[in-house]
Write a protein that binds this DNA or RNA. Structure first.
Lengths: 344, 344
DNA sequence: TTTAGCACTCTCAGCCTGAGAGTGCTAATA
DNA sequence: TATTAGCACTCTCAGGCTGAGAGTGCTAAA
């Protein structure tokens, strides 16, 4: 749809603007990237690109700035090339180190997640995000119940992936520790290998089917298991609000307010990342492509991490639309793979 | 040290500046608070107060602004009066509601803590902080060990206060679940009621004393208990960075950067709050009184919450030095008492 | 000791200006 | 026909100037 020359010039403009946030003019393009056209020619092409919606002008006599559509075009080109550029090579070494570090804290999954978001944000100066595995995707390993202070019970749920969840709730005080053990034994022997959510369904169906021999154990198990797995909404790990403030894109206080509002209720981000969690490879969402209102002025680069090819959660970078997409894509991709590897 | 008239005027200026961040002039003081002096008299007094270091002038022909010393004087006066003022009465009702809500989530201590910081920051527009009970202050209730995936063990530690901690670590693979149970039984029957830290000391001493009959159980218990309680630094709960951005005091981007840097590494705040944790009642630290460099432009109002008169942790508000101290003190005090009550 | 009066100082918003950068259009050129 | 040189035009931005407004310090009178 775009001839070769326009394509070159558009990409040059986007690249230039990404590396320095100043409107880029025709003369600058001819000087910096010696294509062999004169500024006047470039001007004509730029005018065309503006008509097509790839560029815009802050005011009549300023240079051009990419629109979201312009960034989109650029990112799609990147996809074609996909060669590790210079800065990515620099990062490679760091990421190797990082992978080793992750291995070291494999046992502490929450620690690992905050380490990951930290590394993401420090290296990129954007906001690093990671969503932990969701209950419907995590595999039951075992559950235990411990009586605690009168009629309370602590449930400890372990998943295959290494997530530990605990919850305190109140039960019928006639239920003894032995009863609890029996229930736990039953659940552990019958259901390991299923996902947390599946088990609930199976239990309910089972109780239904065998209602002739309506088993007290199963009834109790259903009730207690239900209480034990009703956790608060999965928290997501976010880091880098401070780093992002140093970007020129957010030198304006109202933009900072906007962005902190967006990441304050993590629910919004979770919703967006959920939608991306089934995509293959790295997804890039640019500015107003974003379905969520609060994030329409930001871009998101995301990739899923997996356990044995089953997608578990999402790693992402959130930054301004004027983002170094090449770098961000490389980072998110590499780190998602690192995490997947530690799960095996 | 200050005569009655100066005292009145100083407090009036501080109050006025707290309610509206504009330098206050002599004419304004005489109009707003009808003391019966003329502006000229007030001017003389203000000049004296400036010499004494309670006030300062942004520039020659502006009104006066309180210095940290001025705020300190004001807060000390407040202490004398300590009558609930109008806005505090308004809050009273909210806080009652809040106390009920806390009761409802008593079982989920972490949930309770984030609820508390949230309420603090939303109501005050300052930053709400709470430090959870520290290991050396929490009382051991019981510990359990569960084998998990090969040679790993999950330790679940319950405290009297309702804190649940878990940790995965690796052990000698010859240690069976029965061995682990024996160790847990031993610890649970012997040591409930002591603090987490005490127990470690007791175990070590005991092993030493009985080295003739060097008991395998105790040796193992020491080793495993040590691994189980070596948690990462206690996290503190912080909330309200977004709310604080809407204050006129932080309309400047560099101040926002400063403040987010300060609360980014929670360690800094933890250090400060630790120092305040033994104080009786509400402590107020104003601006450069602050021992920590990063917080010298902020004020902290803090109070400890207790379990049966033993101080457990600290609730605090962090805000600009131009803080509504009266309100902040009232809030922090009330909420600390609420929390203490839920522990009984 | 307090107050009225007055000259003085400082900030701030508004206005203007010239330099600089970049454009769009037109006419000439390869 | 596609490209380019030239030129007038537009817009921003920093800098300087100005008058209004607010508040002070000092002095002399009450």
């Amino acid at each position: 749809m775009l001839d070769d020359r326009s394509k070159q010039i558009l990409c040059a403009i986007v690249q230039s603007y990404i590396s320095k946030p100043e409107p880029v003019g025709s003369r600058f393009v001819t000087k910096k990237y010696s294509f062999g056209f004169s500024p006047a020619t470039v001007r004509n092409i730029m005018a065309d690109l503006e008509d097509l919606g790839f560029l815009s002008q802050p005011h009549t006599s300023a240079g051009r700035v990419p629109t979201d559509k312009g960034y989109r075009f650029y990112v799609d080109c990147l996809h074609d090339i996909n060669e590790p550029n210079d800065s990515n090579v620099d990062m490679g070494e760091f990421l190797c180190h990082f992978a080793e570090k992750l291995e070291g804290i494999r046992n502490d999954i929450n620690g690992m997640f905050s380490e990951v978001t930290n590394a993401l944000s420090v290296m990129s100066n954007y906001i690093g995000v990671i969503t932990p595995p969701k209950p419907e995707k995590t595999t039951f390993n075992r559950i235990d119940f411990i009586r605690y202070k009168g009629d309370r019970v602590v449930a400890i749920l372990l998943t295959e992936e290494g997530v530990i969840k605990n919850k305190i709730f109140t039960v019928d005080s006639r239920l003894t520790q032995e009863d609890l053990n029996r229930i736990a034994d039953y659940l552990n022997s019958e259901y390991s290998g299923h996902t947390i959510d599946e088990i609930k369904g199976i239990l309910v169906r089972k109780a239904h089917r065998e209602k002739a021999v309506w088993d007290k154990l199963i009834t109790r198990a259903i009730k207690i298991y239900g209480q034990a797995i009703s956790f608060a909404e999965n928290d997501i790990f976010v880091s880098g609000l401070y780093d992002v403030m140093n970007l020129p894109d957010f030198s304006d206080i109202s933009r900072i307010r906007e962005i902190s509002k967006a990441i304050k209720d993590k629910h919004t981000i979770l919703k967006l990342l959920d939608e991306l969690s089934d995509a293959e490879g790295v997804s890039v969402v640019i500015g107003n492509e974003n379905p969520v209102e609060e994030l329409k002025s930001l871009s998101v680069v995301a990739s899923t991490y997996k356990e044995k090819d089953r997608p578990m959660g999402v790693v992402a970078l959130i930054g301004p639309t004027r983002m170094d997409y090449s770098k961000a894509i490389y980072m998110v991709d590499t780190i998602a793979k690192c995490i997947s590897r530690t799960f095996d």
